[in-house]
Amino acid sequence: MVSQKVTLTNGQGFHMRPAGVFANAMGKFSSDVTIKFNGSDINGKSLMNIIAACIKCGSEVEICCDGADENEALKTAVELIESGLGE
């Protein structure tokens, strides 16, 4: 398993569009993707779970990827968040 901490910089945080962009991108990997935030584990491939977690702009989250393509998945996840999730 690989993981990395990253801060959300897009204005709206993990909302509909950004969460959709993220879940969609993560769905393409076979690895499990978990977002650790505020003590809970969120399924990184589930748009609904990401929205429910209410992760706001400026929050620090930890992305954990576990599986065959974990390195690539983590790299994509971090790049997506750092680039503002398509906002």
Partner: peptide, 16 residues
């Protein structure tokens, strides 16, 4: 249009 396209993402959400 994207707002309602989001509904497709939601209903197809793997967890839900």
């Amino acid at each position: 249009a994207e707002i309602i396209m989001g509904h497709i993402l939601m209903i197809q959400d793997p967890y839900m």
